[in-house]
Design a protein around this nucleic acid. Structure first.
Lengths: 211, 211
DNA sequence: CTACATACCGACTGACCGGTTTGTTGTATA
DNA sequence: TATACAACAAACCGGTCAGTCGGTATGTAG
């Protein structure tokens, strides 16, 4: 999972086959409805083989999530490190996200759904990894935007959560049909976040309008 | 279940005790992690007693949800029927929502988490009741807002989902600490939805900018 | 070829849980 | 006070599923 193309050992290959199978299953059904037998057979091994590589069902889930968050963290950090306005950087980050295959996108939403199956320690670890991968990076950009006067002063963390939730709606099934291609979705999300839903007079012609 | 204050029969009392217990448990843990024994003992009956009133665990869950949606539907319809700008009506609706006890508020988010435990028919029924209670009513207000030129033309359904997701963030634990009282939260949600996060010159003093 | 390790198989187990059954208590009616 | 039925209790059943365990295959080093 971590090394990309290079030769994987037999063990690593099997482990990543298991993680891949788990991904597909866990995005489609919730934790309790995915059995270890399902994961095993989808990965082309038996339960015995599966438990040779992972000590528990929970460990499969959490290592799957941690791997995913790590890769997302890397992907999105490019937009954070990039220079430009907050809007440009958020556009790139969101664009990168929308360009991901559907499965990878949906993984981001799994934490909220399944988080309560874990107990304290593991839950905190997962949540922290998630925040590192997504909200924290958006928050960094938003902080810059506020400092530069591009965004109105506000709690940056809260704003980043709001932004994430806007994007989550934009990847929903209905938005898929309504907005179509990723560029349109991207534009809508950014426009809504920056300018809101209010009707505005066209800024080109200076004098304005309704009420 | 349907009748509100009047004297409840013994059977109705027990049934509503069961529903109440189920509410607390189902908002705290997901469907699979709540056992019928837990519900029964929290309601002060045994499993036998519980199954005297409900034919299945699913039926407990779904009738709990349907009851809740029905009451929310009634509550929010007042804001829909009210006259005023879209912003005023959304403010009232959101204010009513924020004024609900925490448990009642969180119920609204349960559908998304637990919807996949149901099969086709029941799922559709639940989703339809949810949409009737929340998104559809918000959508009605938004439609008016667009027709009146108060909101920029856009898909009203998508906008209503976006609005719901903003509110959901506003009731999160962190927002609780950051924004404090419901009025502040309400103001932030509305401002963000209508005007966005962008910095704007204060409309009072015509010339702008903190830079 | 031997010895040892790692990878994997698949039958099995023990616990848990949704649902049933059988029996008991309360309560209203006549 | 006998009757009848609803409201519950408690033991029980059947299925499911995470995790185990004894074994077999596939290397790999000496």
């Amino acid at each position: 999972m971590t090394e990309s193309t290079a030769t994987l050992s037999r063990s690593e290959t099997t482990a990543s086959k298991i993680i891949d199978a788990a991904k597909t299953l866990f995005v489609a059904r919730n934790y309790a409805d995915v059995t270890t037998d399902m994961i095993a057979s989808a990965a082309g091994v038996t339960k015995g083989g599966l438990y040779h590589h992972f000590p528990s069902k929970e460990s499969i889930y959490s290592s799957m999530m941690l791997d995913d968050f790590e890769s997302k963290q890397r992907l999105f950090s490019q937009s954070v490190d990039m220079k430009g306005t907050a809007r440009e950087r958020l556009a790139r980050l969101t664009g990168d996200f929308l360009a991901l295959p559907a499965e990878e996108r949906q993984m981001a939403g799994l934490v909220r759904r399944d988080i309560n199956i874990f107990t304290d320690g593991d839950r905190d670890r997962l949540v922290r990894a998630y925040q590192l991968a997504l909200p924290n990076q958006i928050e960094a950009i938003i902080k810059d935007g506020i400092a530069d006067g591009e965004l109105a002063p506000a709690d940056p963390r809260l704003l980043s959560w709001w932004f994430v939730s806007l994007v989550e709606v934009a990847v929903s099934r209905y938005a898929d049909e309504t907005l179509g291609n990723p560029e349109t979705r991207l534009d809508r999300v950014l426009a809504l976040f920056f300018e809101g839903a209010e009707a505005k007079p066209d800024p080109a012609m200076s004098d304005g309008g309704t009420t």
